[in-house]
Each structure stands twice: as structure tokens, then as C-alpha cells.
Computed example of a mutant assay.
Amino acid sequence: MSAAYTTRVKAVGGRSGRVESEDGILALDLAMPKELGGKGGATNPEQLFAAGYAACFENAVIHATRKSETKIRDEDIVVVGEVGLSANSSGGFVLSVTLEIEIAGVDQGTANDIVAAAHQICPYSNAVKGNIDVKLKVSTK
């Protein structure tokens, strides 16, 4: 299967380096978070993952309602992505994710159903399924 979209990003210097996309639109310095003993002051891979997952999931919510009577628009939804980094039992590290999804204009049951459908559609959700603990917190406004 061919990809609908492909991007390339180069990382140099690890957690204290820099990332840059081949088109130059993304160009960021990286720093180890102070909480992990670093100097902070720049973004880190966990923030980038949280941002990407939140934005992608928001679009998956909209996509999940395209063929239904209840349509969710960009201005109806806010997704906050939280990524945790923890040590595992084998000396490595694991990620955890919490997505806080707030949808306007629907009742709680409808919001829950929409988010469940979006979780099946979202490429980030599909990529981490069975590998990363993902919690979905759904609310309405």
C-alpha cells in the first residue's frame, strides 16, 4: 500500500540537539526537560508526540462524524494530549498517553460514542495500540 502522505524529519544531537523537516517548516531546538535533569528551555520528543497525537485525534473526531447527522467542526472540539515517560522493569522506558477531549454541542453519551469511533480511526491510536497505555477523558461543554 502506498502512503497518502510522507514526511521526513532529521534529528541531530539527540535530546539536546535539533529537529528539522526537509521542507524547513519544522525547525526546533531540543532540550532535556529539567524534570529529567536537563536544562530545559526548548521542546522535547514527548511534547512533540503529545502535540501530534492531540492534533491528529481532533481531526479523527471530525472525520468520525462526517457521515452522521451530528457533525463536529474544528471550533467544537479541544483535545489536550499528555504524554508520560516512565522507566520499565527491563531498564528501558515506556510512554503513557492521556487525551482530554472536550466536545461542544453534544450530550455525554454521544461524545463518548464519537470519541470511541475516532480512537479506531486515528493513525496515532492505531500505531500505539497494544504498546502504549492510552486513557481517553471525554467531556462536553
Rank of each mutant, 00 (worst) to 15 (best):
L99H: 02
S125Y: 13
I121G: 03
T43W: 14
G84Y: 08
N112I: 09
T70I: 13
A27T: 11
A11C: 14
D74Q: 08
D113N: 07
S139E: 12
C56N: 02
R66I: 05
G109P: 05
V12H: 02
R18W: 02
E22Y: 12
V128M: 08
A54Q: 03
G24M: 07
D23V: 15
A55K: 13
Y53S: 06
F57N: 02
N126E: 08
R66Y: 00
E35T: 03
A104V: 07
R15G: 15
D23P: 12
G24V: 12
L36V: 11
G24K: 10
G105P: 03
A42Q: 13
K137D: 08
V12C: 01
G13E: 13
I62Q: 04
L26V: 15
G41Q: 06
I62K: 01
E35F: 02
E35A: 11
D107Q: 04
E75D: 15
E75Q: 15
G14H: 08
G41C: 11
S16Y: 02
N131F: 15
V138P: 08
A51H: 08
E22H: 13
S96H: 11
G40A: 15
P45A: 08
V19L: 05
E20M: 15
E82N: 07
K10R: 04
I103E: 09
K135M: 07
E22F: 13
A27P: 06
Y53M: 14
N112T: 12
R18V: 01
K137Y: 04
T98R: 10
S125W: 05
A42F: 12
I114M: 03
L30K: 09
V83I: 13
K137Q: 03
Y124L: 09
N131Q: 15
V61E: 00
V83F: 11
D107F: 01
A3H: 00
S139Q: 10
D107C: 09
E35D: 06
A51N: 06
N88Q: 10
E58W: 01
L36F: 15
A55T: 14
Q108T: 08
A60K: 00
A116V: 00
F57L: 00
V79H: 03
N44E: 10
G14C: 12
G52S: 06
A55V: 10
I77E: 01
N44W: 09
C122N: 08
S68H: 10
S2I: 02
L28M: 14
G13I: 11
L136Y: 10
V19N: 01
T43K: 12
V78E: 15
G40C: 11
Y124T: 13
R8G: 07
V138C: 05
I77C: 00
C122V: 02
G91A: 08
T7K: 00
E58T: 02
H119F: 00
F57G: 01
G91M: 05
V78R: 11
V12T: 04
A87V: 12
C122F: 07
V80E: 13
P45W: 04
T6H: 07
L30H: 09
S2P: 06
S21N: 05
G14V: 03
G52M: 04
K39W: 09
R66A: 07
G81H: 04
K141H: 12
V19Q: 01
A3F: 06
S96W: 07
R73I: 10
S21E: 06
S125Q: 14
G84W: 04
K39F: 02
